[in-house]
Measured scan of single mutants.
Amino acid sequence: MIINNLKLIREKKKISQSELAALLEVSRQTINGIEKNKYNPSLQLALKIAYYLNTPLEDIFQ
């Protein structure tokens, strides 16, 4: 099972779900679904998340 630290990292960087969704060009519901482990992001989306949060991919999804 993948450990998902997206919410923790996003909140630590003081970025809202809506702000991150806008940067990634996805819906806020997509971010919410990823954070609640209801949706697994594509590799492309996971890499974009890591880029915009300036955090290694391995720290977000373990």
Rank of each mutant, 00 (worst) to 15 (best):
K14A: 10
Y39P: 01
N4L: 06
N32I: 15
G33I: 09
K38C: 14
T30M: 11
E19M: 11
K13T: 06
T30S: 06
Q29E: 15
N54V: 05
K14H: 13
K12Q: 11
L24A: 09
E25S: 11
L47N: 12
D59W: 07
S16Q: 05
K12V: 07
K12R: 13
S16I: 03
L53G: 00
L43I: 12
E35V: 02
M1Y: 13
K36F: 06
E58P: 07
E19W: 07
Q17A: 08
I9W: 08
K13P: 01
Y39T: 09
I3Y: 10
L8V: 14
Q17L: 12
N5T: 06
K38T: 13
A21R: 02
L53T: 03
S18Q: 12
R28M: 12
E25Y: 09
L45E: 03
F61K: 02
Y39R: 09
V26Q: 03
V26H: 01
K38V: 12
L47D: 05
L23I: 08
Y51D: 07
I49M: 06
L43M: 13
E11C: 08
N5V: 05
N40Y: 13
L57A: 06
K12W: 07
I9Q: 04
A21E: 02
L47G: 06
I31M: 04
A46W: 14
E25G: 15
R28K: 15
I15K: 04
Y51N: 07
M1G: 13
L57M: 13
G33M: 15
R28S: 12
Q62Y: 12
T30R: 07
K12F: 09
I60F: 05
S16N: 06
Q29M: 09
Q44P: 11
N37P: 01
L43Q: 11
N54F: 05
F61D: 02
Y52G: 03
D59L: 11
S18N: 11
E58R: 14
L43D: 07
L57W: 09
N40D: 10
E25I: 07
L57D: 02
L6T: 02
L57S: 04
G33W: 13
I2S: 10
S16C: 05
K13A: 12
S42V: 06
L43F: 14
S16M: 05
N4Y: 05
E11N: 08
S16V: 04
L8F: 13
K7T: 06
E19F: 08
D59E: 13
K13I: 06
Y39C: 12
E58W: 09
K14Q: 12
Q29P: 06
E35I: 03
S18F: 09
R28Q: 15
S27K: 08
I3W: 09
E19T: 11
E19Q: 15
E25H: 14
I15N: 01
L57Y: 12
R28V: 15
E35F: 02
E19Y: 09
N37K: 09
K48F: 03
G33L: 15
L24N: 00
L24I: 08
E25W: 07
L6S: 01
I9A: 07
N32F: 07
N5P: 03
K14F: 07
L24S: 06
A22L: 11
L24C: 15
N54M: 08
L53D: 00
I31R: 01
S18P: 05
L43V: 10
M1D: 09
S16E: 06
I2L: 12
N32D: 15
K12S: 14
I34F: 05
R10Q: 02
A22I: 11
R10Y: 04
Q29K: 13
K48T: 04
K36M: 14
N5S: 07
R10N: 01
L47S: 08
P56V: 03
R10E: 02
K7C: 08
Q17Y: 03
Q29I: 10
A50C: 07
S42N: 08
N5C: 10
I34T: 01
S42E: 06
N40A: 15
L24P: 00
I3H: 13
N4M: 05
Y52R: 04
A46R: 14
L8W: 09
M1S: 11
L23M: 14
L53V: 04
L47Y: 10
E11V: 09
L6A: 02
L6N: 03
K13L: 14
Q17E: 04
N32P: 01
R28L: 15
A50Y: 02
I2D: 06
L53Y: 01
L24W: 02
F61E: 01
T55M: 07
D59V: 11
E11T: 12
K7I: 05
P56T: 07
S42A: 05
F61A: 03
T55I: 07
E11I: 10
E35G: 01
K36Y: 07
Q44S: 12
I60T: 02
E58Q: 14
E25Q: 15
R28Y: 09
N5L: 05
K12E: 13
K14I: 04
E35L: 04
K38N: 11
N37D: 06
Q17W: 03
Q62N: 11
S27M: 04
R10T: 01
N5I: 06
E11W: 06
A50M: 04
R10F: 05
I3Q: 12
N32L: 10
E58I: 09
K12H: 09
K14S: 08
L24K: 00
E35W: 03
Q44T: 12
L24R: 00
L57Q: 03
I9L: 08
P56Y: 05
Y39K: 10
